[in-house]
Measured scan of single mutants.
Amino acid sequence: MATVKFKYKGEEKEVDISKIKKVWRVGKMISFTWDEGGGKTGRGAVSEKDAPKELLQMLEKQ
């Protein structure tokens, strides 16, 4: 499965696309949330040019 790689608060992170729940556009950035388990929700953002095609497809479906 595809993953999204991004930096959050200076830390490199990687999230499996299948865990992503919500995707939206903020200017030229793609923001998203995912389920971290245990009732926690993670947040992240990646530039439109660095976003994997699967993430962009999720954005178009909404």
Rank of each mutant, 00 (worst) to 15 (best):
M1E: 15
M1A: 06
M1S: 11
A2G: 08
A2S: 09
A2E: 07
A2F: 03
A2V: 13
T3A: 03
T3F: 03
V4T: 01
V4R: 00
V4M: 02
V4A: 01
K5R: 15
K5Q: 02
K5T: 03
K5V: 03
K5H: 03
F6H: 02
F6D: 01
F6I: 10
F6G: 02
K7G: 04
K7R: 11
K7H: 11
Y8W: 11
Y8G: 01
Y8D: 15
Y8E: 14
K9V: 02
K9H: 15
G10I: 01
G10Q: 02
G10R: 01
G10A: 02
G10H: 02
E11H: 05
E11S: 05
E11P: 00
E11W: 03
E12P: 04
E12H: 06
E12Q: 07
K13L: 08
K13G: 02
K13E: 02
K13R: 11
E14A: 05
E14R: 03
E14D: 05
E14F: 03
E14V: 09
V15E: 02
V15P: 00
V15G: 01
V15Y: 01
V15L: 06
D16V: 13
D16Q: 13
D16R: 04
D16K: 07
I17L: 11
I17T: 03
I17V: 15
I17E: 02
S18C: 11
S18T: 07
S18L: 11
S18N: 12
S18I: 10
K19L: 14
K19W: 10
I20P: 00
I20S: 00
I20A: 01
I20K: 00
I20F: 05
I20E: 00
I20D: 00
K21H: 11
K21L: 10
K21V: 13
K21F: 14
K22R: 10
K22F: 14
K22Y: 15
V23N: 01
V23I: 07
V23T: 14
W24Q: 14
W24S: 12
W24G: 07
W24V: 10
R25F: 12
R25A: 09
R25P: 08
V26A: 10
V26N: 12
V26G: 07
V26C: 15
V26I: 11
G27N: 13
G27C: 15
K28T: 10
K28F: 05
K28G: 15
M29A: 13
M29K: 09
M29L: 12
M29W: 13
M29N: 12
M29P: 02
I30Q: 00
I30F: 12
I30E: 00
S31W: 06
S31K: 06
S31Q: 10
F32H: 00
F32Q: 00
F32G: 01
T33F: 11
T33L: 07
T33K: 15
T33I: 11
W34C: 01
W34K: 00
W34Q: 00
W34P: 00
D35I: 06
D35C: 15
D35W: 07
D35S: 05
D35M: 05
D35N: 12
D35F: 06
E36L: 04
E36G: 03
E36F: 11
E36H: 06
G37K: 05
G37S: 06
G37Q: 10
G38Y: 03
G38L: 08
G38H: 09
G38P: 07
G38C: 15
G38W: 07
G39M: 08
G39V: 10
K40S: 12
K40M: 11
K40G: 13
T41P: 07
T41G: 13
G42S: 08
G42A: 09
G42Q: 15
R43N: 14
R43H: 13
G44C: 07
G44P: 00
G44F: 14
G44Y: 12
A45Y: 14
A45I: 04
A45E: 15
V46K: 02
V46G: 01
V46A: 13
V46H: 02
V46I: 10
S47D: 13
S47G: 15
S47I: 14
S47F: 10
S47K: 10
E48T: 04
K49A: 14
K49L: 11
D50N: 06
D50E: 09
D50A: 07
D50T: 07
A51T: 13
A51S: 08
A51E: 02
A51D: 02
P52Y: 02
P52E: 03
P52S: 03
P52H: 04
K53H: 05
K53I: 13
K53R: 04
E54C: 07
E54D: 05
E54L: 05
L55G: 00
L55V: 04
L56Q: 11
L56D: 03
L56H: 08
L56A: 07
L56W: 11
L56R: 09
Q57E: 08
Q57G: 07
Q57R: 05
Q57L: 04
Q57T: 06
Q57I: 11
Q57C: 10
Q57F: 07
M58P: 02
M58Q: 05
M58I: 12
M58E: 11
M58K: 14
L59M: 06
L59V: 10
L59G: 04
E60H: 06
E60I: 11
E60P: 09
K61P: 09
K61A: 13
Q62S: 14
Q62R: 04
Q62T: 13
Q62F: 03
Q62V: 06
Q62P: 12
Q62N: 09
